[in-house]
Amino acid sequence: MEIHKLADCFKALGDPTRLKMIALLNLRDFCVCEFIPIFNISQPAISKHLSRLKSVELVTENRKGQWVFYSLNRERLESIGLALKNLPDVSEELRKLEEKGLLVNCE
């Protein structure tokens, strides 16, 4: 991989919100609207973060009806040396939001 492409990947991962998105996507695929209560930021802001991750090919998108779901591009992450097992476990945070009825389900 070219040095500037690798640097772009690391720049994208350097943002705490995007890194947390990667950790969440390591658990399962997410729709944009599902991220809103997790991060408590607007849909356009979520979309901008995901667009940045997509621009460096760290995530992919798949359309399911009216929804667009994002998933990890695991091969790309492995190619830049990101060990997914080293990401923080965010499943407890998801569980707490679900208990409060704050999680959205787009399926």
Rank of each mutant, 00 (worst) to 15 (best):
P37K: 03
K48R: 09
L84P: 01
N73H: 00
L50E: 09
V59G: 00
R63Q: 13
E34T: 06
G81A: 04
V59N: 00
C31E: 14
A7C: 09
S47T: 14
C9S: 15
I22M: 04
N73Y: 00
S71G: 15
E99N: 10
D8H: 10
V90T: 14
P88A: 04
R76C: 05
E2L: 11
K64A: 12
T17G: 05
F10P: 07
H49L: 00
K20M: 02
E107P: 08
S42L: 04
D15Y: 13
R76K: 15
L25T: 00
L53N: 04
Q43V: 10
N26G: 01
R74S: 04
L103P: 07
E61P: 03
E107C: 09
L24P: 05
F69T: 01
C106N: 08
C33L: 13
W67K: 09
S91M: 07
D15I: 06
I3W: 05
L53D: 01
A23I: 03
R95D: 13
A83K: 15
L82K: 02
R74C: 06
Y70D: 03
H49R: 15
E93M: 11
L97H: 03
Q43N: 11
R74I: 02
L82M: 06
K100M: 10
K11F: 14
I36A: 12
P44Q: 12
E78Q: 05
I3N: 13
I80L: 10
I36T: 14
Q66R: 15
D15C: 09
S55V: 08
S71R: 12
M1Q: 11
I22F: 04
E57Q: 11
C33Q: 14
I46S: 02
G14L: 00
L102F: 09
M1P: 11
E34P: 07
N40V: 08
P88V: 11
C9Y: 06
P37L: 04
L25E: 03
T60Q: 15
E107K: 14
K20G: 09
K48A: 14
N40T: 05
G14C: 06
E78P: 03
Q66L: 00
V104K: 08
F35G: 04
E107L: 11
L50F: 05
K96M: 12
G14F: 04
Q43C: 11
H49Y: 11
F30A: 10
M21D: 02
K11N: 11
V32Y: 00
N40I: 02
D15W: 04
L53M: 09
N105R: 14
N62G: 04
G14V: 01
Y70V: 04
F39T: 02
Q43R: 15
L97V: 06
A45N: 07
E61T: 10
F35W: 08
H4F: 13
V104I: 15
L50H: 01
R28F: 01
E61D: 13
K20R: 14
